[in-house]
Amino acid sequence: MFLRVSNVKKNYQLGEIKVEAIKGMTFDIKEGDFVVILGSSGAGKTTLLNLLGGMDTVSEGTITLNNNNISAYTNKQLNDYRRNDIGFVFQFYNLIQNLTVLENVEMATQIVDEPLDAQETLKMVGLENRITHFPSQLSGGEQQRVAIARAIAKNPKLLLCDEPTGALDYQTGKKILALLQKICQENNKTVIIITHNAALSAIGNQVIKVQDGIISEMYYNENPLPIDEVEW
């Protein structure tokens, strides 16, 4: 199995209070799938994604990627893991303001061994004409596309997106999702996106519904819809 999460728990200790953000989750993800994690606010989606992305460590349970036990990694190993295996797309893009579009992507490609061509990637996200612009000169959707380009140019095994459309309007959001779908299909990348928008469940190969720190429902779509056919 590509990615395996078994009996993962995550607690936060806030002084006296113990917050159980994830109370025990077990699921598998196949390589090349487009996974949608769905849940309302505070359900524990971000926490789960942080664990998958090696930004946080589990309290209990294991996470394995290609049979590597990530949950047992040292900090250094986690750093390498994030560097080489993960592409991350933030809700608020998190571009470096003082770097141009191209430089933002190149900054990521410089640190990995087998990156994709930065310009090519930008062409793929449709920003080949904006490469010399600064993030502040771009719209939100364009910035998110730069962020996606930055994530995939690293040529990661896993692309994690935390509410990638959360800060975008409907049309732009759709375009971003279409892009992610395209990347998943054309580049055969495993993509995990988080959303609180139930309508998006239709576009994933696999849908994991999260509620209050546990998986409330999980299913596979035999024929996921292209985003264009989904309305909300």
């Binding site: 992305g53 930004m55 750093n79 390498d80 893991y81 994030r82 560097r83 080489n84 993960i86 991350f88 933030f90 998190n94 470096i96 900054m107 990521a108 640190i111 990995v112 930055r150 690293k154």
Partner: peptide, 16 residues
């Protein structure tokens, strides 16, 4: 601070 955190997420090493 946010840029630094982003770099960390992107997998930059502490030295970098």
């Amino acid at each position: 601070i946010k840029e630094l955190a982003t770099l960390k997420v992107l997998g930059f090493y502490p030295k970098e």
